[in-house]
Amino acid sequence: MSIEDRLDDLEEALEDQLEENYGECKWTRANGELTLVVPREQLLAVMQVLRSYHDLGFEQCIDVCGVDYAAYGHSEWNAEDAPNTGFSRGAEREAVTDFQVESRFAVVYHLLSLSHNVRLRVKTFLDADYPVVDSVTGIWNGANWFEREAFDMFGILFNGHPDLRRILTDYGFIGHPFRKDFPLVGQVEMRYDEDKGRVVYEPVTIEQRTLVPRVVRHDYRYEEGCKPVKEEEQADG
């Protein structure tokens, strides 16, 4: 059975199970993968279905990760007025403020079904002011550390998590480093202070550099059947 057939079966099973009670769940299929978007209130119930219903049977939670969508699609490249000002490698780095508050964060779960040999990505969006979602550690015990990581890196809170502590950052760390408004160079640096005889933390002195600016190109060369139609042809048609 090819991967496409298995995904067809999965779509059918999803339709059977979710249509009635969880109509708000939508899924899309791209790159040979299924992505299921679940409203956060229903997450726990839907996950329970995905885990226990036989035709779905996602026994493993392979990965949980947070995403911060605040700077999505944002380009640093500023060559628009290059003819007026002379060419400069101007990479503009401004704080992004125009993000959508109600869907700034997302938690992405990658589930794997060993019995059906198929994967599913479950995504749930969270707002910027109250990024709280139910923990799935009760369904998959292995999600424990992954959720701790998402909390540490993005400040996403998991309701019902048994032990929500920081995991990767230093003891006493402030902030959530993978958020888009957290600078790459960090906020503090540490050194050994000889007078005080201990390690001290100070605000960073180095400045963040951009070697290659972030450029968004509308380049659909690689997408199948997505070649942009030439303007002349459009006019003719």
Partner: peptide, 23 residues
Amino acid sequence: GCYIIADGANKPYRLKIRAPGFA
């Protein structure tokens, strides 16, 4: 495993590395 979200730019928007040892 690697999970990449691309937003049309020349850099990944989000890269998540799923390391076996973590689990």
